[in-house]
């Protein structure tokens, strides 16, 4: 049945240095985190194009969660379920909502942060949420005998269509989120990015306000295969705005987002996604209004 199918070589580095040297020795190998995305592809097995595998599961540094003065830091092999155990005091509300709404516990025990961020063709909910939380990722680049390490904002990993822009020898090793907590957060998901990506819409929204005045407004709208939108100008536009928002202000936000969607992908986005996006934005802003009014 599987004649001629090659068994890929599996490399299992034990330290970060081993990993970096393995990645430069086997530049075409696939990095294997939890494997949930790779193995859920229809053409995963059997296939004649089996690339070698670098398994990341044996590197303890990638499985650590650290709390520093400024940041909550997690290794790229930390699983979703492991992250949910760190406690509500430490975990941002928006991240908790996103993780809880992703798959079931059985799958979450296998899904890793690094894997979810670096899926090649499909953007999952986690990327949008981390972008809304202004998370940063540590990218290690192997340059022959040297290794370059830099922290970059997560939104710089993707273009506006959500295509991963990492180079072949780049490795995401850690993710960090600042301790500044949002006053309001909302995560809305319709559809399943793995089953029907052309109908799925995910909205991650984090907002901070003080005495009803908005001081941070971060929204990220994700269509799994066609859009990764962070409307930066909205942050400027909404900064200093009083809550509750008027219906004209809500309409202006919605319109500004819809215009951006049409500019990025004028024809390709199915109407169900644009309709869902519009309603999600409206709904989250109404929720924000309701929360601010209830606190008076």
């Amino acid at each position: 049945m599987y004649e001629g199918i090659r068994s890929p070589a599996v490399h299992m580095p034990k330290t970060l240095n081993d990993l970096i040297s393995a990645s430069s020795r086997f530049p075409n190998a696939t990095f294997w985190a939890g494997g949930t995305f790779i193995m859920s592809r229809n053409d995963y097995y059997p296939t004649r194009e089996s690339k070698d595998i670098i398994s990341l599961s044996g590197i303890p540094e990638l499985k650590r969660i650290n709390r520093t003065d400024k940041y909550l830091e997690m290794g790229s092999m930390v699983t979703f379920e492991q992250m949910l155990t760190v406690g509500k005091q430490v975990l941002p509300g928006l991240l908790q909502l996103t993780l809880e709404n992703t798959a079931t516990m059985i799958i979450r025990k296998q899904m890793t942060f690094g894997g979810a961020i670096c899926t090649p063709g499909v953007r999952l909910a986690l990327s949008g949420t981390l972008a809304a939380l202004q998370a940063e990722v540590e990218v290690k680049t192997s340059l022959g005998p040297k290794t370059e390490t830099q922290w970059i904002a997560i939104n710089r990993l993707y273009d506006k269509r959500g295509v991963l822009e990492l180079k072949k020898n780049d490795l995401v090793t850690r993710i960090r989120i600042g301790f500044e907590r949002e006053t309001f957060s909302s995560f809305i998901l319709a559809g399943n990015p793995m089953i029907n990506p052309n109908e799925t819409v995910m909205l991650s929204f984090a907002c901070s306000y003080n005495q009803s005045v908005i001081n941070r407004f971060r929204m990220c709208l994700t269509f799994p295969t066609s859009l990764f939108l962070i409307p930066h100008e909205l942050d400027l536009m909404m900064h200093g705005t009083m809550l509750p928002l008027t219906s004209q202000q809500i309409e202006r936000v919605v319109q500004s987002i819809m215009e951006e969607i049409y500019t990025i992908s004028p024809h390709e986005i199915p109407p169900i996604q644009t309709e869902r996006a519009k309603r999600f934005v409206e709904s989250s802003l109404h929720e924000l209004n309701a929360q601010s009014l209830s606190e008076r």
Binding site: G35, M39, S40, R41, N42, I106, I107, K109, M194, I195
Partner: peptide, 20 residues
């Protein structure tokens, strides 16, 4: 592709989808 959930086994006492 991990969507039917009919291939569950216990791996070290924890349920997993064997197709993953």
């Amino acid at each position: 592709d991990g969507n039917c959930g009919n291939c569950v086994v216990l791996l070290n006492d924890e349920a997993v989808l064997s197709c993953l």
